[in-house]
C-alpha cells in the first residue's frame, strides 16, 4: 500500500487536463504526413496573405500590352495572364479568396452540421426521423447543381460563396455527429446531468457536442478541403467570384483555355496550389483523427 499509493499519486497527473492534449499533440506530430500538411498549409497562408506585402502587383487593372508574357519576362517571375496581370501576384490574391471561402465555408458547414446532428441524435424519435429525412433529401440533390443555380441568381461575392457552400455542405457532418450523439446521449454522465435537472440544451451543447469534438474537428478539415474543391468547380464553370477578384479554380479554368498555346504558367501554378492545399488539409485531418483516437494514444 505504501508503495502503491505514491505510484497512484505519480500517475495522477497523466489524467489531468494537460495530459490528453499532450498525448494528442504527440500523436499528431508522430504522423509525418500530418506535419507535412501543416507546414504546407502554413507556407501557403504566408504566401497568400504575407506575400502581397512583399511582391507588389496591380491585380485590379489589366495591362493588355503585357498579356501572356512567359515566366521571367519583365520581372514577372511566373509570367502574366491573358490580360497582362502578374501570375505570381494573382496566385496570392486568388489563394486568399480560395482559402477564405474554403476555411469559412468548411467551418460554417461543420457548425451547422454539428448542431443539426447533435440535436437530431440526442432527441431521437420522430424529431430525429424528420431531421434526418431533411438531410437525406439534401444529400440527394447534387451540391454542384444547387451552387450553380444559386450562383446564377445571386451575385457571387465572397460572403455569398461562403454562405452557399456552407449551406450545401453541412449534410455529411450532420450524419456523423448524429451517429455520435445517438451513442453519447445514453452515457452515464448525460443521464446523471438530466437526473440532476439539467435541460436538453445543456445536454447537447455541454456534453454531447464537446464529446463528439474529435469527429467534428477531423471532419472540419475534410470540409475545408471539399469546400476549396467546390469553389474550384464553380469557378471552373465560370460562376466564381466576380473580377477583378479571382480564386485558384478560376485561374485554372482560364488557364485551361490556353492549353494548346503552351501557356503552362497559367495552368500548373494554380493547379498545384489547389492540389497542395487540399492534400494538406486531408493530411492534417488524418493526423487529427489519429490524435483523437484514444486507442492509439496508449502506444
Amino acid at each position: 500500500m505504501t508503495v502503491s499509493a505514491p505510484l497512484m499519486t505519480e500517475q495522477a497527473p497523466a489524467t489531468t487536463a494537460a495530459g490528453p492534449y499532450r498525448r494528442m499533440v504527440r500523436m499528431f506530430l508522430a504522423n509525418r504526413l500530418a506535419v507535412t500538411g501543416l507546414v504546407i498549409l502554413g507556407l501557403l497562408l504566408v504566401f497568400c496573405f504575407i506575400g502581397p506585402l512583399i511582391h507588389h502587383t496591380d491585380q485590379v487593372h489589366t495591362q493588355l500590352a503585357d498579356a501572356t508574357l512567359s515566366p521571367g519576362t519583365r520581372g514577372h517571375l511566373l509570367g502574366t495572364d491573358d490580360v497582362g496581370r502578374d501570375v505570381l501576384g494573382r496566385l496570392m490574391v486568388g489563394g486568399q479568396t480560395s482559402l477564405e471561402i474554403g476555411i469559412a465555408a468548411g467551418l460554417l458547414a461543420t457548425l451547422i452540421g454539428t448542431v443539426w446532428g447533435a440535436i437530431s441524435g440526442y432527441a431521437g424519435g420522430w424529431i430525429d426521423a424528420v431531421m434526418m429525412r431533411v438531410v437525406d433529401a439534401g444529400i440527394a440533390i447534387p451540391a454542384l447543381f444547387l451552387l450553380l443555380v444559386t450562383a446564377t441568381i445571386l451575385r457571387p461575392t465572397v460572403p455569398v460563396q461562403i454562405l452557399i457552400i456552407g449551406c450545401v455542405s453541412w449534410l455529411v457532418p450532420a450524419r456523423l455527429v448524429r451517429a455520435e450523439a445517438l451513442s453519447l446521449r445514453s452515457r452515464d454522465y448525460v443521464q446523471a446531468m438530466k437526473a440532476m435537472g439539467g435541460g436538453h440544451g445543456r445536454a447537447v451543447f455541454r456534453h454531447v457536442i464537446p464529446n463528439a469534438i474529435g469527429t467534428v474537428v477531423v471532419n472540419a478539415t475534410f470540409q475545408v478541403a471539399d469546400a476549396i474543391l467546390l469553389i474550384a468547380y464553380v469557378s471552373f464553370l465560370g460562376l466564381g467570384v466576380a473580377p477583378p477578384k479571382t480564386d485558384w479554380g478560376g485561374m485554372l479554368s482560364k488557364g485551361i483555355s490556353y492549353t494548346s498555346e503552351g501557356y503552362w504558367w497559367l495552368i500548373f501554378p494554380a493547379g498545384l496550389a489547389i492540389v497542395l492545399v487540399v492534400c494538406a488539409f486531408n493530411c492534417i485531418g488524418d493526423g487529427l483523427r489519429d490524435a483523437f483516437e484514444v486507442r492509439l494514444q496508449g502506444r
Binding site: V60, A242, P244
Partner: peptide, 30 residues
Amino acid sequence: SGSTETDNTMQELQSSLSKIGIALSIKSEP
C-alpha cells in the same frame, strides 16, 4: 458566360472605367 474572350473584354472594360472613376461590377450568366 462561357467565353474567355468575353470575360477578358469585360475585365478590360472594368479596368479602363476604373481609371476614370467608374466602378463596374460584373456578373456572368448563361
